[in-house]
Amino acid sequence: GKMTGIVKWFNADKGFAFITPDDGSKDVFVHFSAIQNDGYKSLDEGQKVSFTIESGAKGPAAGNVTSL
């Protein structure tokens, strides 16, 4: 299901971020390909987002990341 959280930090050079979920679970890795914005895919620290949890090769990662 959809979860919500806050972007903890975003590394534009490497194209990934971490989200701190609102439910208090541990921070979730985000690859820029999961960001659903049109055009430039970036996130801002402190931004509120919704996302799903996908199981990636290196463990859980956020999918369908959308700005709220």
Rank of each mutant, 00 (worst) to 15 (best):
G1A: 11
G1M: 13
K2P: 08
K2S: 10
K2T: 13
K2Y: 11
M3T: 05
M3V: 07
T4D: 02
T4G: 03
G5A: 01
G5P: 00
G5L: 01
I6Y: 07
I6W: 06
I6A: 03
I6R: 10
I6K: 06
V7T: 00
V7D: 00
V7W: 02
V7G: 01
V7N: 00
V7K: 00
K8T: 04
K8A: 04
K8V: 08
W9S: 05
W9M: 04
W9L: 04
W9C: 15
F10P: 01
F10T: 14
F10R: 06
F10S: 11
F10Q: 02
F10N: 01
F10D: 00
F10G: 01
N11G: 03
N11H: 06
N11S: 10
N11I: 05
N11Y: 06
A12Q: 09
A12S: 09
A12M: 12
A12I: 13
A12K: 13
A12R: 14
D13N: 08
D13L: 13
D13M: 09
D13Y: 09
D13H: 09
K14D: 05
K14S: 08
K14F: 09
G15V: 02
G15E: 08
G15L: 08
F16H: 05
F16Y: 13
F16Q: 03
A17C: 06
A17K: 00
A17F: 14
A17I: 06
A17N: 00
A17V: 10
F18N: 03
F18M: 11
F18G: 02
F18W: 14
I19T: 00
I19K: 00
I19A: 00
I19Y: 00
I19M: 01
I19F: 01
I19C: 01
I19D: 00
T20C: 10
T20P: 00
P21T: 04
P21F: 04
D22A: 06
D22W: 03
D22T: 06
D22P: 01
D22I: 06
D23Y: 03
D23S: 03
D23M: 02
D23A: 02
D23H: 03
G24I: 01
G24H: 03
G24M: 03
G24P: 01
G24K: 03
S25V: 02
S25Q: 04
S25I: 03
S25T: 08
S25A: 04
K26V: 10
K26M: 10
K26N: 07
K26F: 07
D27R: 03
D27W: 06
D27C: 14
D27Y: 04
D27E: 08
D27H: 04
D27A: 10
V28H: 03
V28W: 04
V28E: 01
V28S: 02
V28L: 13
F29S: 04
F29L: 14
F29I: 13
F29E: 05
F29D: 01
F29W: 11
V30K: 01
V30T: 01
V30N: 00
V30D: 00
V30Q: 00
V30E: 00
V30G: 00
V30F: 14
H31W: 15
H31P: 14
H31T: 07
H31N: 14
H31G: 05
H31D: 11
F32H: 05
F32N: 02
F32R: 05
F32P: 01
S33T: 08
S33E: 07
S33W: 10
S33N: 08
A34D: 11
A34E: 08
A34V: 09
A34P: 03
A34Y: 13
I35C: 09
I35G: 03
I35H: 02
I35S: 03
I35A: 02
I35T: 03
I35L: 09
Q36V: 12
Q36G: 07
Q36I: 13
Q36P: 05
N37G: 13
N37S: 10
N37W: 14
N37D: 11
N37L: 12
N37F: 12
D38E: 09
D38G: 11
D38N: 11
D38M: 12
D38H: 10
Y40I: 10
Y40V: 09
Y40R: 08
Y40K: 07
Y40Q: 11
K41I: 13
K41L: 13
K41E: 10
K41S: 11
K41R: 11
S42G: 09
S42E: 09
S42Q: 10
S42P: 08
S42I: 10
S42F: 12
S42L: 13
S42A: 11
L43V: 06
L43I: 09
L43Q: 01
L43G: 01
L43P: 03
D44C: 15
D44I: 14
E45Y: 13
E45T: 12
E45A: 13
E45S: 11
E45F: 13
G46C: 07
G46D: 02
G46K: 02
G46S: 02
G46A: 02
G46E: 01
G46N: 04
Q47G: 04
Q47H: 07
Q47S: 10
Q47C: 13
Q47P: 01
Q47D: 08
Q47K: 06
Q47W: 06
K48E: 05
K48H: 13
K48N: 05
K48D: 02
K48V: 09
V49N: 00
V49S: 00
V49M: 01
S50G: 04
S50H: 06
S50L: 08
S50W: 12
S50N: 05
F51H: 00
F51M: 01
F51S: 00
F51Q: 00
F51V: 02
F51L: 02
T52W: 12
T52S: 09
I53D: 03
I53C: 14
I53Y: 09
I53M: 11
E54D: 09
E54N: 05
E54V: 07
E54T: 06
E54M: 06
S55L: 10
S55C: 15
S55N: 09
G56P: 14
G56C: 15
G56M: 08
G56E: 13
G56V: 11
A57Q: 10
A57M: 12
A57G: 11
A57L: 13
A57D: 14
A57P: 14
A57Y: 11
K58I: 14
G59A: 10
G59Y: 10
G59P: 13
G59N: 13
P60R: 05
P60I: 05
P60Q: 08
P60Y: 02
P60F: 03
P60C: 15
P60S: 06
P60L: 06
P60E: 12
A61Q: 15
A61K: 06
A61S: 11
A61Y: 14
A61H: 10
A61N: 11
A62L: 10
G63I: 14
G63M: 07
G63T: 13
G63K: 09
G63L: 07
G63R: 05
N64I: 12
N64S: 10
V65N: 15
V65P: 06
V65E: 15
V65M: 06
V65T: 13
V65A: 05
V65D: 15
V65L: 11
T66A: 06
T66C: 15
T66S: 07
T66R: 02
T66W: 00
T66K: 05
T66F: 00
T66M: 03
S67H: 14
S67T: 03
S67F: 04
L68S: 15
L68W: 01
L68D: 15
L68R: 15
L68Q: 15
L68M: 10
L68A: 15
L68E: 15
